[in-house]
Design a protein around this nucleic acid. Structure first.
Lengths: 229, 229
DNA sequence: TTGCTGAAGTTAACGGTGTTCACCGGGGCG
DNA sequence: CGCCCCGGTGAACACCGTTAACTTCAGCAA
């Protein structure tokens, strides 16, 4: 058990991830390569295997950090009306994604590369996704502590849907009532769609500035959470 | 001008794309490589350069085909109520995406690889995206020929938003009235979000079966197109 | 028939990638 | 002192895109 300084190892790990992050910022996810990282650090690529079992593991680890960073960037504890806070969280999410497109692509883009890492990827990042969703779930719960929840949409009260919620239940138990979960799923899906379609440029054939659409859809979603249709 | 059989060349082009498609189906977008294609065809990789200027061009070409195929898979000419037809188109889109995740990732996933091909990619596929959106625009126009359009959401009547619609206008002119465009943008964004989040597995931490959520959001969106909030 | 031309494919090579293996230097501990 | 093992190197293998030079061969013209 030669501990040396245990901080030395973790410092190198942090340096590796910082270098990977820099490559991600400048060249997108595909620019992250072990050899490029090692080159920038004045090392050789095999040395990184002392710290990570492979490139995939490094990327997954980095992505986990991104979820935490994004959670901090989005979370906005305050004593405002939770509805206002929720809207502001949506805007902060969009702002972070637009400012960090490569990071967004890593965390929320298309995985599907090799079927091999696909499962491992998802399993290890389940925690990140769940903890990220928690921030929104908390705020929506705060909303429904003030405003009455709207009537549940059809299909979302079925026992089949309740059974489909098993993964969520494993992560969060019964901490949130069903209307909160339902509102979260709808709101998060819309927010994801708006931001992903903008960051990935899939609406560039139609519109140059997505912000008006975003604001319209955001306010429509927020107001829909309290009794609207 | 030794034409030989001009069909021979186009047959080889088709064979190359078919092989690429097969690799895409079995191993995702990252599995498409010139060497693998050539290997499966009993050729060598440089031979493919007689037909495509490079891997990127091949992938872009293939993606263009996917847009056309998807348009055919989604389009449902019929004399039903256009609202019913629109809902069925949404379901067909989801079904196609779930059955062809790799293809969906190629057409609607995160680009962002190298900044180089990014622009070229988008420019060449603008046409595909626009022609694909056309199918939905047509149907929504048919909807509003029968049902009255809902009140325009805030922000989407601003002159700023009208100016932002320039790319759309370049592609489609003034063929569709503003409420049609507005309803399309909202509906398409929601549909994209629902399907992408499911295909990419970003909701697997919460839910095993997205279908109830999809159906709830779909019907909410469809009904919202005719006077609902 | 001969000869040219151009399309289609090959081999070899360069630089890039992840990953594995054998090796080695040096610091902490028994 | 001697051992061990952590962190690093170098070489190698297999894969990738891409380029250049070369061959092969069908088809047309003189």
């Amino acid at each position: 058990m030669t501990t040396t300084t245990p901080s030395r190892r973790s410092a190198t790990v942090a340096a590796i991830k910082a270098t990977a992050r820099r490559l991600l910022r400048s060249g997108g996810p595909a620019a992250i390569s072990l050899r490029a990282i090692a080159r920038e650090m004045g090392m050789t690529a095999p040395a990184i295997y002392r710290y990570f079992p492979g490139l995939d593991a490094l990327v997954v680890d980095l992505t986990g950090d991104l979820f935490a960073e994004l959670r901090d960037a989005v979370d906005r504890p305050g004593d405002d009306d939770p509805l206002v806070r929720l809207a502001e969280m949506g805007r902060r999410f969009r702002r972070w994604a637009l400012a960090n497109p490569g990071e967004f692509a890593l965390a929320f883009g298309s995985p599907v590369p090799g079927v091999t890492q696909f499962d491992r990827h998802c399993l290890e990042l389940t925690d990140g996704g769940a903890r990220f969703g928690e921030v929104f779930l908390d705020t929506i719960a705060a909303v429904y502590a003030v405003h009455p929840p709207p009537p549940m949409p059809a299909n979302l009260g079925d026992p089949g849907f309740l059974a489909a919620l098993q993964p969520y239940r494993d992560a969060h138990g019964d901490r949130f009532p069903l209307p909160v979960v339902s509102a979260f799923l709808i709101g998060w899906t819309r927010l994801y769609g708006l931001v992903a379609i903008e960051v990935f440029g899939h609406l560039r054939w139609a519109v140059t500035d997505v912000e008006p659409l975003f604001e319209a859809e955001l306010s429509r979603t927020i107001t829909g959470m309290t009794g609207g249709a």
